[in-house]
Amino acid sequence: MNVAQTPKPAISWPALLVGLGLTLPLLGILLSGLFHDPHDLGNPLEDETAPRFTLPRLDGQGTLSLEQLRGKPTIINFWATWCQSCPLEHPVLEQAAREFGDQVQFVGIAYEDKSERLSAWLQRANRGRPSAYPTLIDVGGKVAVAYGVYGVPETYFVDAQGTVKHKKTGPFLPSADPTADGRLELRRILGEML
């Protein structure tokens, strides 16, 4: 063995530096990951002009376009009958639409769903009363793509000038806990918009 002839330093600095240089950044990156929700994908449309659309109404009364709604803040809710939390959210939106109907405009856009199914469902959910706000049919999902919908329900808040101010991913659910109550959350966002 030639160790005796050429005694080497007991600490190998290059190895230590390379090792720490590789592992510490990796640990830092993983740590930062713990503080981010991988499913929270943000809203690239925030403060951008809301994408224009013209879609047929579910009730058969012609079409509705975003431009027709200018001047009033608009709340666009993407939903579907096959979505499991939408039924729970529906009454919350209905209620808000009745309450704020003269100040804001609610619009539902059906996502990957069929007209007859939607009509029957709304009929049942509203117990025969007319809906407080219109639902539009988005055949081929083009408007959902324009808004960047990942899943249902998603709700977009557009101000009177046609700018997207806020996006809610997931349902507004009623809850006895004030910090978790979707009704209060919706009220708060509407308050900010008005």
């Binding site: 002009t49 994408p51 224009r52 659309f53 013209t54 081929g140 083009k142 408007v143 324009a146």
Partner: peptide
């Protein structure tokens, strides 16, 4: 329907 582009495309 498949080949029609939305009004938003030209804006974007």
């Amino acid at each position: 329907q498949l080949l029609t582009l939305g009004e938003d495309v030209i804006d974007t």
